[in-house]
Design a protein around this nucleic acid. Sequence first.
DNA 1: GCGACAG
DNA 2: ATCTTGTCGC
Length: 237
Amino acid sequence: MDLEALEREQRALAARVRLEPAALPSPAELSVFAFDVHYRAGIAHVAGSLWQGGREQVTYCGACEVAAPYLPGLFCYREGPALLALWRSVAERLPAVDVLLVDGHGVAHPRRFGLACWLGLAAERPALGVAKQSLLSDPPEPAPERGAAAPVRLGAEPLGWAVRRRTGVKPVFASPGHLLDVAGAREATLALPGRCRVPDPLRRADRAARARASGAPSAGEVELGRLPPALPPWHDS
DNA sequence: GCGACAG
DNA sequence: ATCTTGTCGC
């Protein structure tokens, strides 16, 4: 399948994304499952970290094959299958999870279909993307104080935010992936635990994935099943 | 044609 | 993301 077909598929999948208000609890109750992947010697090392009420509950890691090469704008096809493989292997044993959190974009994407959209659709869960760099032109500059946010637009349409999580430090770029709206993406990003630019759950997942890739795991090992497909169907019936 | 381009 | 040494700064 060529690049243009994959891009057409993104546009079709984007039409299935539902940007709607999520009933997220207060920060003291919010539970998130954050993911990250590191690559080493052709193997994807994936980690997922569950946080609730600002505290780490449990973190898992595992390994699988690399689904696709990295191409800007098609990141979801590279990273999505690994995240879904981990999610499928641990979701059943987890307590309630309010939102899935990924290191990448949601709908703040040239075709409105970033990694958070892919994962949200595949897992049928609310999903949020928090990235360190904007994919859309003219990244806006929010006020310098923690809590400030400036909208990120595709054309005239606001799809996400540059969010200042720490006073005087560069913002992160947040957008909803699925079952969450644009306003909710800003609120959730500021409700996530940690005072650093990148929320603690993502930093923990990053550390766990890197540690596993380097041969010194810092999280519980789980067996990942067969790598899910990069394109639907993701479900049986 | 050239550069830019989530991770 | 990964390949890589040292270096500057809070």
